[in-house]
Design a protein around this nucleic acid. Structure first.
Lengths: 266, 266
DNA sequence: GAAAACCGATTGTCTGGACAATCTGATGTC
DNA sequence: GACATCAGATTGTCCAGACAATCGGTTTTC
């Protein structure tokens, strides 16, 4: 603990606090229906993403920022807070608000595999293998909160990228929630359909595991028997807490991995 | 779409809006150093957890609540907002704030496997297999942001529950960050050690995949060759954005699965 | 020279109020 | 009876200001 002069305060890379960024023409449009704090948050976010606000930069104190923009301090704070929640900024009392040294991208959203692939430019295709109703198994009944044996909708899909199978998706949904149009299911994700039907997704519970492929599964996914598969079971709830979907999916481990970002809540 | 009187509004379980909960003796202690909004948030949270605020219950409007507690509305809003962020409450303009129908437990924290197991009452044990320094491989160097070949700390541990191996954990850390005491590593988690050394964890990037076990890996984890393994690679960053840890772990898929809750950001 | 006290800067907490936007249910109209 | 309109309730946004807590560096003191 004595005489390690090159490394200040237990670190190895001194954070250089740049001078406050007084430039960066920020402005708000009071005639817009978009909330002021949100306008500001978006401008700051895009400035950070585009590098106009370099990592480590101090934002300048809230009071000045507010008066410069003609806003009140609570409004500016609300904007900043939303970016802190996203992990883009860090506040330090007595010091200021600093741009995080990046690396954070997306804090794990509930997006469908379809959206994920589309965002990655993989041009996903979907083949609907099944779209009907069946009596709920014990597993499905427990997840959806219905009686065992009650009719539920079931959809099985094969997801492909560049013509190669990548995942087998099986979803169970309670009846009466929405119409599952087979054609629509081939061109968009399930979650998008659900949101479009007025279902407000709220939370989900996921379990990710692995196992080896059976001969049947191997054939479906073009993998040899015994190869590694990623499994994912997910129950999704709407904002009233009722289950709206139960998924039981398998992915080719040779082609796919779950990739996500997460934030530490302070 | 006509005459399905039992199912209102596309649903199958009517959310019953109980009368506002005017009881539930809430109170704040102004002499306490704990922020008022936080006191209120904690009381509401415990009331929800203990079922004193049943799922679906309306909270009663913010103005009344504020005047009843002798607080201002922004303070009450701040308390409620923190619980909305946690997924325990849902706000609806023109309607009120409602307790979510439960199901949400933990929105995926950055906890170590050790903590997870301990919370599950698994009484984990750790065997430190390696604790030294080595030159960084290309993979490690890229993750930690150091030059390839530079010395970094490396720790390999075997995690056991009830005497059975469950996971093999390999971590690389930059030098100078903290002292890695082998004895401490056997009795607590790595993240706890890091936090104790003044490192403020901020975010992490994870990749979860799967593969089949090699003969060597099988022997280490008491699994036959070719059995399925879950793999997890994680880079953790502190709040200045510098990487503080890179982990490359394998888990016995027959014994372990990742289990987490996630919230949809509105 | 080293430790303690001080001070300016900045964010954290809190107040009291105002108006807007949205939802629900009741009322009225055709 | 079906549809449009209205009113009340509730959350969403915004303001101007006050004081407290904390951080970092400076000054003072020993």
């Amino acid at each position: 603990m004595s005489e390690v002069p090159v490394l200040p305060a237990g670190g190895y890379a001194r954070p250089v606090p740049q001078p406050p960024s007084a430039s960066l023409d920020l402005h708000v449009d009071r005639s817009s229906p978009v909330p002021l704090y949100y306008q500001l948050a978006q401008q700051l976010e895009s400035a950070i993403e585009q590098g106009r606000l370099a990592p480590g930069t101090l934002l300048g104190n809230e009071i000045d920022l507010a008066s410069r923009l003609g806003l009140s301090r609570p409004t500016v704070r609300q904007a900043i807070q939303s970016l802190v929640d996203k992990g883009l900024l860090v506040r330090r009392r007595g010091v200021g608000t600093q741009v995080v040294h990046s690396q954070v991208k997306r804090p794990l959203e509930l997006s469908s595999l379809y959206d994920d692939l589309q965002a990655a430019g993989q041009s996903p295709a979907t083949r609907v293998l099944r779209n009907e109703t069946e009596p709920a198994s014990a597993e499905v009944a427990a997840a959806l909160g219905v009686a065992e044996g009650a009719e539920v909708a079931v959809v099985e899909r094969l997801r492909l990228t560049h013509g190669d199978p990548m995942a087998h998706l099986r979803n169970h949904l309670p009846l009466g929630l929405l119409e599952l149009d087979g054609a629509r299911l081939e061109t968009t994700g399930l979650y998008r359909l659900m949101r479009g039907a007025g279902v407000t997704l709220h939370s989900a519970h996921q379990t990710v595991g692995a196992r080896t492929a059976t001969a049947q599964e191997g054939e479906l996914l073009a993998e040899p028997e015994g190869s590694a598969l990623l499994t994912m079971r997910r129950t999704t709830y709407d904002d009233t807490g009722r289950p709206v979907e139960y998924g039981s999916h398998i992915y080719r481990a040779s082609r796919y991995a779950f990739d996500f970002q997460l934030l530490v809540r302070p």
